[in-house]
Amino acid sequence: MFDYLIFGTFVGLLFHGIHRKVIARIQGRPGPPIWQEILHTLKFSFKQTWIPKTASQTLFVWVVLVAIGIWSAALIVLVTRGSLLLLFGIYLLHKIVEHGMGLSSGSPYGKFGAIRSVMSAASELPLFATVGAIYLFTGSMMLTDILAWQTEHGPLLVFAFPAAVALYVVILSKMHYSPFAIIESKEIVSGNMTEHFGVWRAGLEVAFGLKTYVLLYAFVLLFLGPLPFLLVLALMLLLLLSLSFICAFSPMLSPYDTVTVQSLTMGIVAVYIVIVGVLFA
């Protein structure tokens, strides 16, 4: 399992680098090399590290470990084809990490990031809609059953397209530089990550790399079904490129606009679920 975690981290960080490169090229800048995020993580690992004097020290450190822990667990759930509900739960727990990271430092920038994280709780709602729609079609929350259903009937992308769009919005809202990334926007320095530097930042980069890998991997598995692994990686890259295009062209939304767009997405998918539910009944 350790090799999966190393591989997931490496690919996730590489994807972050590709994401930055694509955004830069679209915006007419050369951009950093695609392995920049891997170098960043290594660099932070060896930089001087301390904890701010004003921080809640235990929480400040533990929140980094929790971030790595939950996304490692999420990858294990995916690899072992466990419960989709568990994956959904782990994703929601990431909100606690975002919030704890911001509040624990005592910094006003971190605090603003944490408040925005609470406000953008709407970003989790489309995921719930996705889970509900998938359950209506497949009748199971276990990934093994969902994959088996797709082998028999075809990709869920065709049958539950609005649910796929909802998950796409969820992934978009968690990408760096996304129009929904209000918790780390530059007017509040780095938001909830402002005070985490040195080895703490390296730990967070590892966790966020894993998060990107897990979310993209989950999208491909859930909506395209069981495929050869190299093809899965290629599809994850394609998905990432589409996200990068959106991030490059879209300005950062205001916090309230973010909540509005995400709530609307949830509303549309909820109507879709009701219709599908009535049809199934």
Partner: peptide, 8 residues
């Protein structure tokens, strides 16, 4: 076990 932060 955590002590609270001191907000700035």
């Amino acid at each position: 076990i955590s002590r609270p932060e001191r907000q700035v």
